[in-house]
């Protein structure tokens, strides 16, 4: 019943960094595994593997997580409620435990109509809150119907929250529900405005639960503007967009994005328990971020 490194680290009050990989559509997973090993193994405590993110069908999170373990990395299994009913979610959670996975992140999931299979059924038998509660039940040796388990798993259960949502109250109410349902840590949606993040952290201080500040690495001016227009609860300040405009080469190479992220984390590290880096394939800039934010 050993604790995950991520759990040990955040519960000891240390600053933890998590990375994220999105497996490809297809079976050529070597590239993303190699990059994870090369750039994330020494810089991140654990690495999320996304679960058919954006409702686009891909190589699965469960297998991706196990492949990370094989390479000496600690995974965070993302589980969305869109594609599986409560039987499959519980079964996969047990399977994950059997494969050595301890960190599980419970998410409702984007609607299927937003991805590349709009014709597919959306299940949503459980939601993020009831999935967390179900994982807690499994840890107590019971399934969702009250049946006894033969062998009981333990997880380090995570959830997500959007710090820049307006109004923030529904987020806080749901965050509290997630904690009551068993959430032990939170990874946030991307946040860029340190003042906004500080305000949010003051509001959630009362919950006494570790929060990892989410960072989507800014790759271009177009991407920043697109997120502002289309991604709920994400606001890239105009000053950062100007920063990205300044030196096109530096932006293209990832230097600007890494510097923006490092600057944010330098200030944020005193406010929260970690950072969650969503590099969208740019794992190679993670070492620069860690160095720039003086996290190691």
């Amino acid at each position: 019943m050993s604790l995950s490194d991520l759990q040990k680290k955040v519960e000891a009050g240390d600053f933890a960094v998590t990375g994220e990989i999105g497996p490809p559509k297809g079976v050529n997973v070597d590239k993303c595994m190699e990059e994870a090993e090369k750039y994330l193994k020494d810089t991140c405590t654990a690495v999320n593997v996304t679960d058919n993110q954006s409702s686009v069908m891909r190589f699965g999170s469960l297998a991706g997580c196990r492949m990370l373990i094989d390479r000496g990395l600690e995974p965070v299994l993302q589980m969305v409620c869109r594609d599986r009913n409560s039987i499959a979610l519980q079964s996969d959670a047990l399977s994950a435990y059997g494969l050595g996975i301890r960190n599980v992140l419970a998410i409702t999931g984007d609607h299927q109509s937003l991805g590349d299979h709009p014709q597919a059924a959306g299940v949503f038998d459980l939601d993020s809150v009831s999935l967390l509660r179900t994982l807690s039940l499994l840890e107590q040796g019971k399934d969702a119907s009250g049946g006894e388990l033969d062998g009981v798993p333990t997880f380090f259960k995570g959830a997500v929250v959007t710090p820049c949502s307006d109004p923030i109250e529904p987020q806080l109410i749901k965050m509290e529900k997630k904690i009551e349902a068993g959430a032990q840590f939170f990874q946030t949606q991307a946040v860029y405005d340190i003042k906004q993040f500080e305000t949010f952290m003051k509001k959630v201080e009362q919950f006494k639960v570790p929060v990892l500040a989410g960072q989507v690495i800014l790759k271009s001016v177009g991407m920043a503007r697109f997120m502002n227009a289309n991604v709920a609860g994400v606001q890239v300040p105009e000053t950062l967009i100007q920063e990205l405009k300044k030196d096109k080469e530096a932006t293209k190479s990832g230097k600007t994005g890494a510097a923006i992220c490092a600057d944010f984390l330098k200030e944020a590290k005193a406010m929260c328990q970690g950072a969650h880096l969503m590099t969208l394939g740019w794992d190679h800039i993670v070492p620069d971020i860690i160095a720039g934010a003086e996290l190691q």
């Binding site: 984007d110 959306g122 949503f124 939601d127 809150v129 009831s130 529900k177 609860g233 606001q235």
Partner: peptide, 15 residues
């Protein structure tokens, strides 16, 4: 709700 959720809004509610 497009997802028939019962425990509150998802992360997709727009600004």
């Amino acid at each position: 709700c497009a997802k028939s959720l019962v425990n509150g809004q998802c992360g997709g509610t727009t600004d």
